[in-house]
């Protein structure tokens, strides 16, 4: 039964994979579209992992991209600076995979160092601390010459391709789904629903808040590593508040606690962002209206306000597509 349910998810993934590969082979999806699809998949990882923190556990993190930065720079340093890997050597791919995972662990460590002190306190400390963390990590990276300083870490080998990113995304979805639909996951939801009651049915609430935060940071680190090896650069400005806010909007547009919602929103908003960028460029260069890409953020702010006014619970609410639900025995 259990196997059958995971099978459904694997089948859905396989169909998506094949469609994209076929469309790409016949030339419907050119390289430009493939970059957007790859980017969408990375944002699926980032949104689903942030949803574990903000949606499932009910905390409020504002610096998710900071953890992606840690993963990007850690894995990028390993593949670029330490081993000088090349995608032309197949055996290097193994080291790349390990580097991505190591990047995840570095991000998880950062998550622990930030989450443990701030989640022990009641109140909105996490929001303040993670907001600060996002900025601090940028400043630090700007000032470490070994990883390029303000120029960024350049020449990262291009190991990320559609297949690699797809597999990591599918893996992330499966693992986070397994966590959410388990005793641990229900415990995290109970903290979101009523923290005091959770504590009074024996839940060490601090422990599970930190756990959700650290696991979320781990997968953000994975996402950051994949992005760095896709774009072949890790640059401090990629990981600022703007990007963190975008992931946050994906989670709330999709619906807090709904992984399905985060997946759909990550895809839609990544495409929308690109569409807006193209539209704004056109308005500026062809029509001559002097506006910049920062206007996308204005449009997202409006989108978020509309969601808050008219569809508070996001696209999916707390519902989950049946593909993502682990069915249990009844009675």
């Amino acid at each position: 039964m259990d196997k059958l349910k995971s099978l459904k998810l694997l089948m859905a993934g396989l169909i998506f994979y094949l469609i994209v590969q076929i469309l790409s082979a016949v030339g419907v999806l050119n390289g430009y579209f493939m970059v957007i699809i790859n980017r969408s998949l990375v944002f699926v990882i980032l949104a689903v992992s942030l949803n574990l923190i903000n949606g499932v556990t009910g905390q409020f993190s504002l610096g998710h991209m900071g953890f992606a930065a840690v993963g990007a720079y850690a894995s990028g340093s390993i593949t670029t600076l330490i081993f000088k890997l090349s995608p032309h050597h197949p055996q290097d791919a193994v080291v790349f995979l390990i580097a991505i995972i190591v990047g995840g662990f570095f991000a998880a460590l950062a998550g622990f160092l930030i989450g443990f002190p701030s989640l022990r306190l009641k109140g909105d400390y996490l929001a303040i601390v993670t907001l600060g963390f996002g900025e601090i990590i940028r400043t630090i990276l700007n000032n470490i010459p070994a990883v390029g300083g303000p120029r960024g870490l350049l020449g990262i080998p291009k190991f990320s391709n559609f297949t690699v990113i797809f597999l990591f995304t599918l893996g992330t979805i499966i693992l986070i789904r397994n966590l959410v639909q388990s005793s641990i996951g229900r415990t995290m939801i109970s903290i979101r629903e009523n923290e005091l009651a959770s504590e009074l049915v024996g839940v060490d609430t601090t422990k599970y808040k930190v756990l959700g935060f650290v696991v979320g940071a781990f997968f953000a680190g994975i996402g950051g590593g994949l992005l760095a090896h896709l774009l072949q650069i890790a640059h401090p400005t990629q990981y600022g508040f703007y990007a963190s806010a975008l992931i946050l909007i994906m989670v709330y547009v999709g619906g807090i606690g709904s992984l399905t919602g985060s997946i759909v929103a990550a895809f839609s908003l990544t495409f929308l962002t690109e569409g807006l960028r193209v539209g704004i460029d056109w308005l500026r260069d062809t029509v001559g209206i002097p506006i910049g890409t920062e206007w996308t953020m204005v449009i997202y702010a409006v989108l978020l306000i509309l969601i808050m006014l008219y569809k508070t619970e996001g696209l999916m609410g707390m519902r989950e597509s049946s593909i993502l639900v682990i069915k249990e025995k009844q009675g």
Binding site: S183, I184, R186, T187, S190, S198, V201, G202, V203
Partner: peptide
């Protein structure tokens, strides 16, 4: 699930 949370510990 309300009840199961209370068995978690």
């Amino acid at each position: 699930d309300n009840i199961r949370v209370a068995r978690h510990f």
